[in-house]
Nucleic acid binder design. Structure first.
Lengths: 201, 201
DNA sequence: ACCTGAACACCGTTCAAGT
DNA sequence: ACCTGAACACCGTTCAAGT
């Protein structure tokens, strides 16, 4: 009859608790240092219990990647909103998206790595994910009226690659992260304005 | 007295043979699927034998990364030479370096991943590696006479990030790799020429 | 100097059994 | 439905001992 039957651990939300703790474990030591048995120990549960919630270790990592991708999307939307949202012009929006991407990678290097480090699998395609769609929208707005879809897609890919490269190099080397943080604003503005002036053929 | 005392396996070159086989194992299944015991089994040697040549598993992976980095450097130098070497103008050289980088990532996605996927460790800094120095040289040649070192370094970082982003995104998603391969030539030329026209402030 | 054998403390995963 | 206990086949690493 109790309406709140122990919402903690052993009852109900083991899956959520496991993902939460797994994210912490992956944050220090990296995704390779994540052990299901250690995780079970931390949660006060038998190793086998996790298999009621995840098919295997890979499924757990997949869950982690989805969480991180959602966080990245939030960061992108927030940066967009802070820049004025739909009212801002397209170059402004593009720069804001880049800013959000870089800020996320800098603030949560572990989560950023998790999104992209896993081997590509059926169904997990970052390109179908929301952040890419936001980018495509901004680039489309920047493109000249006559531009065909393939040309726009290529420009979006180039813009993504530029920012993604800055983010991944920064996530690997601390001093690069510093350099990126210092130069990011200028680089993003130059890039976005350059796109409007000379949209690639 | 035998001048060539079984140069194979059990004698002499276990280290080289281990790296060779490890590279193969990492190529399929990824670096995470690499097991020292499996490796020892493949080489017909006891697991402990590997510890005469590598301090631990991480040291083996480090050896793998160094090999891959050397291969990447070769690819960059080859592309440079094919483009005319020192006689080619700076924009041409910069584009050639990008071409070599992308071609390597496409031909050996596993090796490319190994270079960059490992957690940064003291002493392993891709930025001190030869490929970066070649890049810095080309960008320096493109910079206007008065440009100071920091500005040049920033431009080199941006160029690297652009190409690195294309390469890593391509290494993750097969269709992106195709798109990159199709668009690379145009993107690289535009980028290199754009740098000469409007070197970033 | 280089390698083996055996051992230690860990893994991921499965499966019968409990509640 | 969700969890435990015990087991299986694996790990990385160490250390004495062999040649």
């Amino acid at each position: 009859m109790s309406r709140v039957p122990r919402p903690t651990y052993h009852h109900g939300n083991l899956r959520a608790a496991a993902l939460e703790r797994a994210a912490q474990l992956a944050a220090d030591g990296g995704t390779g240092a994540l052990s299901l048995r250690q995780l079970a120990r931390d949660l006060g549960v038998s190793p086998a219990a996790l298999y009621r919630h995840f098919a295997d270790k890979d499924a757990l990592l997949d869950g982690l990647a989805q969480r991180a991708l959602a966080a990245l999307e939030s960061a992108a939307r927030d940066a967009l909103a802070r820049a004025g949202g739909d009212q801002a012009d397209a170059a402004e929006r593009l720069a804001a998206l880049g800013r959000g991407y870089l800020a996320f990678a800098r603030a949560h290097p572990d989560a950023f790595r998790i999104v992209f480090e896993l081997r590509p699998k059926a169904g997990r395609d970052p390109v179908e994910a929301a952040p890419y769609l936001l980018l495509l929208e901004a680039v489309t707005a920047l493109a000249p009226p006559g531009a065909d879809a393939a040309r726009v897609r290529r420009a979006a890919l180039a813009a993504w690659a530029f920012v993604h490269g800055l983010a991944t190099l920064g996530a690997q080397q601390a001093w690069v992260a510093g350099e990126v943080a210092a130069a990011a604003e200028g680089l993003l503005r130059d890039y976005a304005r350059g796109l409007r002036v000379g949209f690639p053929s």
